[in-house]
């Protein structure tokens, strides 16, 4: 099923990147925003024949304050938790309108986009419903690991130990005391044809995954690493460097789940210590050696589990 849909798939190379932009200049993202960058890359790969349903969040607010819009493709925002449901409606409507010959028959990529809060917390139910119903759409989770738009509150995607305004470190607290929710695994558990994680540091990889997600028929889930200088307290020029380190330290592994089979798209043979990743960000500044070691062990364990899943798929 996968192979047929991707018959015409051509990998992007640094020399064949599309010039098309779905988002125009003049958007109001913070200086050095990694989230709008990850979004820009993904949408470039998908191409202009798309309709976007956006959740409430940073990307919604920075692109659409009336009377200007940064959007150059059709875009709708309804509320926070329902991007996947709105996208479901658009997809199903176009399907029936094409069948009834009221709009031209043409495959348009329906994109739902939300942050980690809009995906892993408040929007999880709508996402699960849409994945389960099998709508032909691409869901993009832009994971900046907290509620940045409202002022850096913790979400279930905030990593262990991180300082946010609702997971402050203190005498009785190390900061965030829960481990990051594994949303790609939740998405994959729906048995959908395509799930992938990607990072803007590895832009051809990100764009190839976005392209595949668009080409595949049925639901596809993209989990995009989205550095936030404002919320993570890092220098404005570090978004890409931190994205790269997240991969090299195995904190944010890059993989695909194709028809249930895990594929590591970037194997980390000589990992860097997690500490190198943590130390660039003010949100981890308060962590002691013991906690850092705890994080290191958990990261190693989770990566090993991923490697085993990929090996299992390869052996099949």
């Amino acid at each position: 099923m996968m192979d047929a849909a991707l018959k015409d798939f051509k990998r992007f190379t640094p020399k064949t990147l599309p010039k098309m932009e779905a988002i125009a200049q003049g958007h109001r993202a913070c200086q050095g925003c990694g989230e709008v960058l990850a979004l820009r890359m993904a949408l470039k790969a998908i191409g202009k024949n798309m309709i976007v349903a956006s959740a409430t969040g940073c990307m919604e607010i920075i692109t659409s304050p009336y009377p200007q819009t940064a959007w150059q493709v059709p875009w709708i925002h309804v509320a926070f938790e329902n991007a996947a449901a709105v996208a479901s409606g658009i997809e199903a409507a176009r399907k029936v309108l094409m069948r009834k010959r009221r709009i031209p028959r043409q495959r348009t990529t329906i994109v739902a986009m939300a942050g980690d809060g809009g995906t892993a917390d408040i929007g999880l139910q709508a996402l699960s419903g849409a994945l389960e119903r099998g709508h032909d759409f691409v869901y993009i989770c832009l994971d900046n690991e907290a509620y940045m738009n409202t002022g850096i509150q913790r979400s279930s995607c905030t990593p262990y130990g991180a300082m946010t305004t609702t997971s402050p470190p203190g005498k009785m607290s190390i900061g965030q005391h829960t481990w990051k929710k594994n949303v790609p695994a939740i998405a994959a558990a729906h048995g959908i044809p395509y799930v992938a994680t990607a990072s803007p540091a590895y832009y051809t990889d990100l764009m190839n995954k976005a392209k595949k997600a668009a080409m595949i028929k049925g639901p596809a889930y993209l989990h995009l690493y989205s550095p936030c200088p404002t919320g993570w307290r890092h220098a404005g020029d570090l978004a890409i460097e931190i994205s790269r380190l997240a991969v090299k330290t195995k904190v944010f592994p890059l993989y695909e789940v194709v028809d249930g089979r895990y594929i590591l798209t970037r194997k980390i043979k000589k990992p860097k210590p997690v500490k190198e990743y943590l130390k660039l960000q003010g949100r981890f500044r308060h962590l002691d050696e013991e906690t850092i070691e705890e994080i290191q062990q958990r990261v190693d364990r989770e990566y090993e589990a991923l490697v085993r899943k990929a090996a299992l798929a390869e052996a099949e």
Binding site: I51, A53, I76, V78, A79, E81, N82, A84, A85, V86, A87, S88, G89, I90, A92, A93, R94, K95, V96, L97, R99, K100, R102, I103, Q125, A126, S128, G129, A130, E132, R133
Partner: peptide, 28 residues
């Protein structure tokens, strides 16, 4: 009836699907 029947997972999604559908031009 030639229609899409979308059996959603909640009423919140029911009305959200309807908004998306209507915005895409379908009688909903």
């Amino acid at each position: 009836l030639d229609a899409e029947f979308v059996p959603v997972e909640s009423e919140h999604s029911a009305i959200s699907v309807c908004v998306g559908s209507s915005a895409a031009g379908a009688r909903t």
